[in-house]
Design a binder for these strands. Structure first.
Lengths: 153, 153
DNA sequence: GTTTATGCAAAGGCTTTGCATTTCA
DNA sequence: TGAAATGCAAAGCCTTTGCATAAAC
């Protein structure tokens, strides 16, 4: 099963990361990673907190924030700020490179891919001497659905 | 003088925008716009508040936040969230299209341009039926300076 | 046995809100 | 004059911090 494979994979990556940095391998950390990789799409801390509370594992918000920092550092999770101040997260491993379309009307966030973004990253490295770790491209506007609604109100 | 020209230009755009939307033309609003366009680079609300306090015009933080929303709506100002929760703003008119390189080491934000981003916007419109209003591309990593420091510590 | 992580609650920082006062139209 | 904007302070929301307790190593 692909999902189980991915779980095993990221758990191993995280474990190695913790070891390499002298961090402890607590059950909370692995439970959080597991929960993060059990779902698709974006989530905020409150939602993750709720999910874990209803399930077997209850962790504090503080631990969620701390663990997110670790997961972001080892590139298993990405953090976004689409609108407002609240951070949104998503899993980042084995997930095809993508960027986001944010609809100003309905607030929905769609994903899209474009290979030219990789070319831009390469150019930035070559021309500006900038070592790229990651990028985030958000395109804001009005999605197809909301546009249809506009025309026939 | 080019600066004065630009000031006159954006004041007119803002004035027309306010009229078109039935908003009032208060001196605070024009003073804020003027202050925003008197400087280059990014700024946060606190800095703008400080600048205006030391100068002739003192406005409340609430009015600054409200006016930023208006200026963003008429595309005279852009809002960014580079790191953390605090919003950064910059003027947007007559300013060549650009994106940002964010250094994780020193926190500096550089600008860069790449015409391929416009092609990506066009493709998104054609293929996904998404009407683009604006975009934001942030590339995170380590800038040239910090990399040099790393090598010779 | 140390040292690090967790959990809780309190503090913090940025932003928004409510309401009295002022000001534009 | 009437509706909208301002200013101030309080409230809100998300996030971080401090400290006692628990648990890795």
């Amino acid at each position: 099963m692909v999902v189980a494979e991915q779980q095993a994979n990221v758990q191993r990556i995280f474990s190695e990361y913790l070891e390499r940095h002298g961090h402890r391998k607590t059950p909370e950390r692995f439970a959080i990673l597991s929960e993060v990789y059990a779902h698709d799409g974006h989530f905020d801390i409150e939602r993750l907190y709720g999910r874990m509370k209803t399930k077997k594992y209850r962790v504090s918000r503080a631990t969620l924030y701390n663990t997110m920092d670790l997961l972001i550092d080892c590139e298993l999770v990405r953090r976004h700020r689409f609108i407002g101040t609240q951070a949104q997260f998503e899993k980042a491993h084995s997930y095809r490179q993508h960027d986001h379309l944010v609809c100003a009307q309905c607030g929905e966030v769609q994903e899209f891919c474009d290979p030219r973004i990789q070319q831009i990253r390469n150019t930035v490295t070559e021309v500006m001497g900038f070592t790229v770790r990651y990028h985030a491209l958000q395109i804001h506007g009005v999605c197809r659905n909301c546009q249809a609604k506009r025309q026939t109100p």
